[in-house]
Simulated scan of single mutants.
Amino acid sequence: MTFCANDLAALLDEANHAPWESVRAALALIDGQPHPRVGWLTSHLTATKRDCWAQIAAATGAPAPDDAAGLTRLMAWEVDAARALSEEALHTRLTFSDGDMTVAEALRLNARHTAWHAGQIAALANPVRLA
């Protein structure tokens, strides 16, 4: 399956920011003190996104994200960064998550991974409290 840069940017934008079933939507469900696992999940997403883009930058010469960017800024940045990738860059091979893949495949993995953890955050957003 082949995706252009705009398609990949749209996938990331939806996983990150869609009104439903995204990281932003899941975080918005949290009312009060979040479950401790939510902190781990957001830190994990930040680290894996940063690692993905570091690998892309090393393989293609594309810019790497700002080291000081938290998850919210990183999610916005990566949508624009994906949109700016050339067709040649998308076909560049790299090693990510212990696998040999193209940049496009790494971005699809990034979007799936983001959606997976968004679901986990949503499930933890309002845990049932028993008396």
Rank of each mutant, 00 (worst) to 15 (best):
A131S: 11
T92E: 09
T48H: 12
A9M: 07
P36Y: 06
S97L: 09
N110Y: 00
R83C: 12
A68F: 03
L45S: 12
D51G: 13
D7C: 07
A125H: 08
A9Q: 06
N110L: 00
L41T: 03
T114R: 07
M101W: 15
A58F: 01
R37L: 12
L109N: 06
H113W: 10
W40T: 13
A5C: 11
A25V: 07
D66P: 10
Q33F: 00
A89G: 01
R83A: 15
H44M: 12
E88G: 14
A125M: 09
D7V: 08
L41R: 06
H17L: 14
A57G: 12
V23R: 05
P19T: 11
F96A: 14
R108F: 03
H117T: 02
A118K: 02
R50L: 08
D98V: 09
P65W: 07
G70D: 15
W20K: 15
G99A: 10
V103W: 00
L45P: 13
H113A: 06
H35I: 09
L85R: 04
Q55D: 04
T95W: 00
A118E: 01
P127C: 07
W40I: 13
A57D: 07
D66M: 07
L71D: 03
T2G: 04
A69T: 10
D67M: 04
L107V: 02
G39M: 03
L27P: 01
A125Y: 07
H117D: 03
D98M: 08
A131E: 10
F3K: 07
A118M: 02
E105K: 11
L27Y: 01
A76R: 15
A26K: 04
L45F: 07
A125R: 10
V79L: 08
R93I: 03
R129G: 01
A9H: 05
A57T: 04
R93T: 09
A82D: 06
R108D: 02
F3C: 02
S22L: 05
A57C: 08
A59F: 07
H44Q: 11
S22M: 04
V128P: 12
K49Y: 01
V79T: 15
E87P: 08
H117S: 05
F96R: 11
A26H: 04
M101P: 12
G99K: 08
